[in-house]
Design a protein around this nucleic acid. Structure first.
Length: 551
DNA sequence: TATTTAAGCGCC
DNA sequence: AAAGGGCGCTTAAATA
């Protein structure tokens, strides 16, 4: 059963569809959306909601105290089906772009109201849903891309729920960290005292009393006057230089970064009521990873300040990280038994060393990253042949993806997300030597992208399945049957997601159960994507009071 | 003055 | 160690 919600000029409607997509009832006008959804959600197996855009429907429902179990997000699914090589022959894929291909419009001030009436893009949700079902049904293995659409939609629900719940954030802890590092909070537009002291040290050693180190050209000039030959002012380039100005300069850069990216202004703008509420964008990255938007910078939270993420009294944070996810995904994608074997004991990189392919764990890691990113030179490039010899199937898999990209072809993840078309990169007989060089460089760049796309994209699919499964498992924790409905934030719930890592906030007595569910959900995700393949997806779990204690 | 681009750096 | 994939954000610099 599907429950299709639409917004039109005359208001909201609900249409029930049976499993074959036929109209079973409706469309009926919906007057009280919150009540309507709540009633349906109380009925087990009531169906899956179908709507244009989770980010426009769900936040209002959550504010009204209503949680949704399952949905189809037509906008997110359209983006996948529009591009997927598996549905390339479908009417949907061949149709002209329309409103369903557009990104979510920016919300009006104050966000979307629960009962807002708005026009849907171009065609009704029922029509779009039918087109999407037809596209899926015509594929060789509808369950494959069907799983991707369900996982993507579950991700949209989770993103809204995590924003609603918020990441517990202790302002006073954060403030203490900033004061310790930079000095106490200064007046607006002044540098904190410790930072100012470090700056003076830089100015003195470079003999430039008015230096603004935040200006790369100015800094470059000052370094030049001191006799330091550098191409840029990047920290990693400065690191190796032996000069009394370098240490304080690197320290200043560290401080300046913290102040501007996650300082007091960030705190004022992003933390309220003891919660940080990131604005996640599911599917925001071409590979299927999530993006984020707004000043929060949720996916770039520095390790340095994670200690400000503190569980509520009597609660714990369960921090779970999928260990070496991308290499394991590659092993599974390529059915490389040797690499799967290397990861079976726990530490994949240690397993690679044990196999004799390389001599140290650090080398194993560098070589693997190089294989997945397309390194050609440096340490990583040199180690690659050794890896290729030990794990020919895995390396051939990424090499094939790279060659396909260089030829201008599309590559596709395990569940069916395809890479976007690249720019031509070709040249004709009128091309100059420079044109040819440029075109080849572009082709190689495209190859590095497609090489990484298959791994990163499939890892993102695994992570979505992991998190969606975990969400379902958490729901059943700590509440007996028949206790009635309650706010989901009263029990174990997801509060953070970072590509291959999740954080669950839960009452203390549930933490160990949560840990078990996290591991079980990871095993489920592996089976969902790869069936019986003997590739394991171990999870590192830490039960902590603050996020800084994890790892 | 307002908007866009580039540099640099944080995360995976 | 500093070459390779994907992002977003802040500041300074460049442009309109």
């Amino acid at each position: 059963m599907y429950l299709v919600l639409s917004r039109g000029p005359v208001g909201m409607t609900l249409t029930e569809l049976d499993d074959s997509g036929g109209v079973a009832r409706g469309p009926d006008e919906v007057v009280d959306l919150g009540a309507e959804v709540a009633i349906r959600e109380r009925t087990p197996g009531a169906g899956r909601w179908v709507w244009d855009d989770t980010s426009r429907w769900y936040p209002g429902l959550l504010r009204a105290g209503v949680r949704v179990d399952r949905c189809i997000d037509l906008r997110l699914c359209r983006a996948i089906l529009r591009n997927s090589s598996l549905t390339a022959a479908s009417a949907l894929s061949r149709s002209a772009r329309d409103g369903w291909d557009e990104p979510t419009p920016e919300p009006r001030r104050g966000g979307y109201a629960l009962f807002e009436v708005d026009d849907e893009p171009d065609d009704g949700a029922i029509g779009e849903f039918a087109r999407q079902r037809a596209a899926v049904a015509a594929t060789a293995d509808p369950a494959r891309i069907g799983l991707l659409l369900a996982a993507e939609s579950a991700g949209a629900l989770i993103a809204a729920e995590m924003r609603f719940a918020g990441l517990p954030w202790r302002t006073e802890v954060h403030d203490a960290m900033l004061s310790e590092l930079l000095g106490p909070r200064p007046m607006a537009d002044h540098r904190p005292a410790k930072m100012q002291a470090v700056l003076e040290s830089v100015r003195e050693t470079l003999d430039t009393p008015t230096l603004n180190p935040d200006s790369p050209p100015e800094l470059l000039a000052a370094l030049g006057r001191a006799g330091l030959q550098v191409q840029s002012t990047r920290s990693w380039e400065l690191q190796s230089i032996d000069h009394p100005a370098i240490a304080p300069l690197l320290e200043y850069k560290k401080m300046a970064r913290m102040l501007s990216a996650n300082g007091w202004n960030w705190l004022d703008a992003n933390v309220a009521g003891g919660r940080f509420r990131p604005d996640y964008v599911p599917g925001g990255v071409v590979t299927g990873r999530w993006a984020s938007k707004g000043g929060g910078g949720a996916l770039q939270l520095p390790r340095q300040i994670r200690g400000a993420v503190v569980a509520d009294p009597g609660w714990k944070l369960v921090v779970a990280d999928a260990a070496q996810l991308e290499p394991r995904i590659l092993a599974a994608l390529s059915s490389d038994r040797g690499m799967a074997e290397a990861g079976s004991a726990g530490d994949l990189y240690a397993g690679i060393v044990a196999s004799g392919a390389v001599d140290t764990r650090a080398h194993a890691k560098i070589a693997m990253l190089g294989a997945m990113y397309g390194a050609t030179s440096g340490e990583s490039g040199r180690l690659l042949p050794r890896l290729a010899k030990a794990y020919p199937r895995a390396i051939a898999f990424v090499e094939d993806a790279a060659r396909a990209g260089e030829r201008g072809e599309v590559v596709t993840t395990r569940l069916g997300r395809s890479s976007p078309l690249g720019t031509s990169g070709g040249y004709d007989e009128t091309a100059t030597a420079a044109d040819v060089t440029r075109a080849r460089a572009q082709a190689r760049s495209r190859g590095r992208f497609t090489r990484n796309f298959v791994v990163q994209g499939t890892a993102a699919e695994w992570a979505l399945c992991w998190m969606a499964g975990l969400r379902g498992r958490l729901l059943g924790l700590g509440q007996g049957v028949g206790q009635g409905r309650r706010e989901f934030t009263a029990g174990a719930h997801l509060v953070f997601f970072l590509h291959d890592e999740v954080v669950v906030h839960c009452p203390e007595d549930l933490a160990e159960q949560v840990e078990r569910e996290v591991r079980a959900a990871a095993a489920d995700a592996g089976r969902l994507l790869f069936g019986a393949l003997p590739v394991e997806f171990p999870v590192t779990v830490a039960i902590v009071d603050d996020y800084g204690q994890a790892k």
